[in-house]
Simulated scan of single mutants.
Amino acid sequence: MSQDLVFYTNPMSRARVARWMLEEVNQPYRTHVLSFGLGMRDADYLAINPMGKVPALVHGDTVITEVSAICTYLADAFPQAGLAPAPTSRERGAYYRWLFFIAGPFDAACTNHVLGFEIGNDAKKAATAGYGTLERVLNTLENELRWRDYLVGKQFTAADLLAGAYLGYEMAIGAIEKRPVFERYCANLIERPAAIKAQQIDNDLASHAV
């Protein structure tokens, strides 16, 4: 497979998370910045991602969309970066668990909360939603992080990148409360050189109002 990585993004989107992951794997990549609306509805881009949204990553003949999928793919495509436990390790299950906990229950619970869809004490709604309640989701994550720096083992993985990025964003916009455990966890992650570099790149792009 060609090692060319082509990244489709907009700096005012969750594609920022994928940018951070690209900087962590430290491989050369080309960036295409797409505007919202017509840019993402262009026929050439729709052939890559029919959803008409970013991010998308093209690696040779492989197309990957969705932030969590891009992070998971890059961790496995470039194992030298050390961003995922070995496939046969005892920590691989926990790694998958937290990757998809963030992509599934956490993201869904926060999105519903921002949109004003509240579960409250309605047991039927809680069962239908799948994640239960936002409070349950946050408590589950808080309890896991209370006595540790990383979600899996003793080193940073793609699961931490996803969790740190999403937690940081939701706290910044006031969608969830700034619990001390979450603030400590995120503060440790945003100081990573790749996180700083990715933020600088996207902040510069955002200043040009694409």
Rank of each mutant, 00 (worst) to 15 (best):
F117G: 11
A94V: 14
Y29M: 06
Y8S: 08
I201V: 14
A18P: 05
G104L: 01
P79S: 06
N112H: 13
G39D: 06
Q200G: 11
Q80G: 14
R92G: 00
A86Y: 02
A108F: 13
D122V: 03
P50Q: 14
K125N: 05
D160Y: 00
C110G: 01
A172S: 12
C71M: 06
S207V: 07
F117N: 14
Y166S: 08
L83H: 05
T31N: 03
H32E: 15
W20S: 14
I201P: 01
R192C: 05
K124L: 13
A103R: 06
T157L: 02
A123S: 10
Y185D: 10
A127S: 09
S35W: 07
R41S: 06
E66I: 04
G52L: 04
A84C: 03
R30L: 10
I190A: 10
G174H: 03
D204F: 14
E177N: 12
K154M: 12
T157H: 14
L134N: 02
A209E: 14
P105R: 03
P28E: 05
E91K: 11
A77S: 08
R41E: 10
N188W: 06
E191Q: 15
L38T: 12
Y8E: 08
T9N: 11
N49K: 06
A195H: 06
K53N: 08
V67L: 02
R14N: 13
N143Q: 15
E142C: 13
T157Y: 12
